[in-house]
């Protein structure tokens, strides 16, 4: 305001931003431009390969068509079921671990800074490491196979579920809890009868969301040996059987679409 009063009467020109705002904006744009330019310059692009790309894609398309549909009942179906189990088991495991961690992370339930910090660090670590990296770790521990995949999915999901659930717990209206406290309820019954009913819808919708994500993620874990569709895909790619890869890609696409429909249906029933 004072700014406008100072500049306007003198000369009736108009500038959208003050000098300071302009500088900040220019600096930001410059930063973006420099970052992009530096990245373009230093990233290793082999131009012949890039120009060749459309032809390679066409070639791949030709090899994929027609898809080897007979491959589905032979191998893909079993792999698909495995992927489903990995995702669902992983989600169930993550629920078991995320519940206590989210309670420890919510500062209104656990008024202990050290425990909060501990739980939050666990959750952040779980989230920062990609499920594919988790899978690499557990393939090294349990050996190749779906078990490594399920544990990897669980480890990645704990952070996601725990964070969202912890935030939901922290938003619970204090009044209801205080009433329970005043009635002499123990910590356990406060959680069971105060917090749980309040976060239940959020909890189920978080689990559903994560399950949907897990279905997608578990379809690629096999690329590092953790079972499911990815493993079948890896095998087909290694032997250049692109018509089989096409079947797997179609399967994944179908699963994603079905998953979306199922989740939309349940979410509508939940809310």
């Amino acid at each position: 305001m004072s700014n406008a009063m100072a500049t306007v009467p003198a000369s009736r020109t108009w500038q959208r931003h003050t000098v300071g705002q302009k500088l900040a904006r220019t600096a930001l744009w410059l930063l973006i431009a420099v970052a992009v330019a530096l990245s373009v310059q230093s990233i290793n692009v082999i131009w012949e390969f890039l120009w060749d790309a459309p032809e390679q894609m066409m070639d791949m398309g030709r090899r994929m068509w027609p898809p080897d549909l007979a491959y589905y009942p032979k191998t893909v179906h079993a792999a698909l079921m495995e992927t489903f189990h990995i995702a669902t088991l992983g989600t169930i495991f993550s629920m078991v671990f995320a519940l206590p961690l989210s309670i420890l992370a919510a500062h209104n339930i656990t008024p202990h800074k050290g425990l909060n910090l501990f739980a939050k660090t666990m959750l952040v670590s779980s989230r920062s490491v990609n499920s594919l990296v988790w899978a690499l770790l557990f393939v090294a521990v349990f050996g190749p196979g779906p078990l490594a995949g399920a544990v990897a999915i669980a480890c990645r999901s704990v952070g996601f579920v725990g964070k969202l659930l912890g935030e939901a717990l922290e938003e619970v209206h204090f009044g209801a809890i205080e009433a329970l406290k005043a009635a002499g309820a123990s910590q356990t019954s406060q959680i069971l009868y105060g917090y749980w009913p309040a976060v239940k819808p959020a909890f189920w919708s978080i689990m559903l969301l994560r399950w949907d994500i897990n279905i997608r993620e578990s379809s690629v874990l096999g690329l590092v040996g953790a079972g499911g569709l990815g493993m079948a895909m890896n095998a087909a790619i290694d032997t250049f059987e692109w018509d089989r890869v096409a079947v797997i890609l179609l399967t994944i696409f179908a699963v994603v679409v079905i998953g979306e429909v199922v989740v939309t249906y349940f979410r509508r029933r939940l809310i």
Binding site: A4, M5, V8, R12, W14
Partner: peptide
């Protein structure tokens, strides 16, 4: 625009 702002009595609000 500034003339109109004078007319509607909002000259000081241009940047708001």
């Amino acid at each position: 625009a500034y003339e109109l702002l004078d007319i509607i009595g909002l000259s000081d609000f241009a940047h708001q």
